[in-house]
Design a protein around this nucleic acid. Structure first.
Lengths: 108, 108
DNA sequence: CGGGATCCGAGAGGATACTG
DNA sequence: CAGTATCCTCTCGGATCCCG
């Protein structure tokens, strides 16, 4: 992704290469509250298919936002958590949450 | 959109209904610096087709983020600007810009 | 200049079945 | 449980032409 290639000129675009996708934002929101198992994420993100959820998590892992830890157990257990880079996106998430709350109040 | 219908339970999702799209974020970035003509937006947003740009602007207009002003001239002139609601998204845009700048520095 | 209308292809994403 | 593998649908978005 943005590893070695030239980054976009605009900082906002750089951010978008990370979280332009709706599901990624919601995954981020969930993982900001702590480590989650795959099944927990799937249940929380209503409407997402496991295929899409998996692909989004893989991309976020490649981008260095998410860490995947698989435990060699039966039945298998896989836990996802945010890396420091992933957690550094928190101000953006906070701003989005604040805006959503305000908007909801105005339209109540 | 979110006019009369039930809003998502999560504030973040509410925000996403407004700016889940990449182009909308970039349109927002451009219009935060002031009113722009259609052609200016098209030139600034490299890679967007006029069809997509038009549809995104229409949706943002319906969502109350953007105001469209057409002047009855020849050749026609159409100016787009942000409504107060659109400008209220600035904190989110700022957070995205800040994050992008920091990320670029770390990977310089 | 700022679109609307139409056609078309790629690919995102759903549903289902199977597996370590 | 947490995937992978197929298949298949259908939307998004690009390209092109036309119009006030």
């Amino acid at each position: 992704m943005c590893t070695k290639k030239e980054l976009p000129a605009c900082p906002v675009e750089t951010t978008l290469t990370m979280i332009s996708n709706k599901w990624k934002v919601l995954i981020l929101r969930d993982l900001l509250t702590g480590t989650k198992r795959f099944g927990e994420l799937k249940k929380s993100l209503t409407g997402v298919s496991q295929k899409v959820l998996t692909s989004q998590l893989r991309e976020m892992e490649e981008n260095g936002l998410v860490e995947r830890k698989a435990y060699p157990e039966v039945p298998p257990r896989v836990e996802y958590s945010l890396t420091p880079l992933g957690r550094s996106l928190k101000p953006i998430m906070d701003a989005m949450r604040v805006w959503g709350e305000q908007y909801k109040q105005q339209n109540a």
